[in-house]
Write a protein that binds this DNA or RNA. Structure first.
Length: 116
DNA sequence: CTATTGACCTTAG
DNA sequence: GCTAAGGCCAATA
């Protein structure tokens, strides 16, 4: 499986995000087997071009939208998230109280069983 | 080769 | 709660 390029693994990780859930760039990167490559994830999304890819479920570590407020991508992402049942307020996603969040997000009600 | 930039992250004030 | 600074990695000029 290591033959797949980083981009392919990142896309796969994003596609693995369940409906109504959100994930952070750093977390996606880690899940893709690329710790510390959060920026690479952003770069891939910037040039994705795949509509079947739930890129709108990828947010920053603060649960905030990566796009600047008022921007087109920002509004679109917020709208898409709301359409999936995710509460978005002031450009940020309603997230449960937790530590750095990066290890928490995901599942709207239950956390995925996974190794740290 | 060095410098700049980017849908980032973390720690500190 | 928000702002500022440092760090990290990859692509591009």
């Amino acid at each position: 499986m290591a033959d797949l390029s980083a981009e392919a693994r990142i896309l796969a990780a994003i596609r693995d995000v369940p409906h109504g859930a959100v994930a952070g760039y750093g977390q996606i990167a880690r899940r893709a087997g690329l710790p510390g490559r959060a920026r690479l994830v952003a770069r891939v999304l910037a040039g994705n071009g795949d509509d079947t890819l739930p890129w709108h479920r990828v947010l920053r570590s603060d649960g905030r939208i990566a796009f600047p407020p008022g921007s087109r991508g920002h509004r679109e992402q917020a709208a898409r998230l709301r359409a999936e049942g995710v509460q978005v307020t002031a450009g940020r996603v309603r997230m449960p109280p937790r530590a750095t969040l990066d290890a928490t997000l995901w599942g709207p009600a239950t956390a995925l069983p996974r190794a740290r």
